[in-house]
């Protein structure tokens, strides 16, 4: 689309034709945008691992912060409100990962089945989370609702 126009000598003109300047300007801006995206990505991307993947990667999670997702293991949650610490464990059936999180768990945590924790693995094998996200995949998914029978309906269970 670059139309080559005859370069005119104007006070603000200079040597390059205007169209070329504008195209160059656009390229510079696009280049800068690309650079911003690339550099922001470099510094901030994290592995998003399952428990099995984390195990397979060895000590990766001790060196850099990762996100790890798993099912919340039943009856492992202990919340200590006094020092705002929570302990729980993630599981995928085969592996268990104890997690310590210093912070306030999201409101949906208690009902959640899938949990994502962001942080680093300590040498003690405990995952020290700096961020916890809870997801309730069953919550909005009607096909996973387990209706007991009409008498009990109203106290419904969800099946993960």
């Amino acid at each position: 689309m670059a139309t080559v126009s005859v370069p005119e000598v104007k006070p603000d003109g200079g040597f390059l034709p205007r169209q070329t300047k504008i195209l160059l300007g656009a390229f510079v801006i696009l280049g800068a945008l690309g650079f911003f995206i690339f550099s922001s990505l470099q510094g901030n991307q994290q592995y998003f691992l399952t428990l099995a993947e984390m195990k397979a990667k060895g000590d990766l999670a001790t060196k850099q912060a990762v996100r790890v997702g798993g099912n919340l293991a039943p009856n492992t949650t202990h919340i200590n409100s006094k020092d705002v610490t929570a302990e729980f464990a993630l599981t995928d059936g085969a592996n268990m990962l104890p997690v310590v999180y210093k912070g306030i768990l999201p409101d949906t945590f208690e009902k959640s089945t899938q949990v994502i924790a962001e942080g680093k693995l300590g040498n003690d094998g405990v995952f020290h989370a700096s961020l916890v996200l809870a997801k309730c995949p069953s919550k909005y998914d009607p096909s996973k609702i387990e209706w007991h029978d009409s008498a009990q309906a109203g106290n419904l269970d969800y099946k993960p």
Partner: peptide, 10 residues
Amino acid sequence: GQKLTVGAPY
């Protein structure tokens, strides 16, 4: 072949 995520900092 590996899930990578970015959060708010990105």
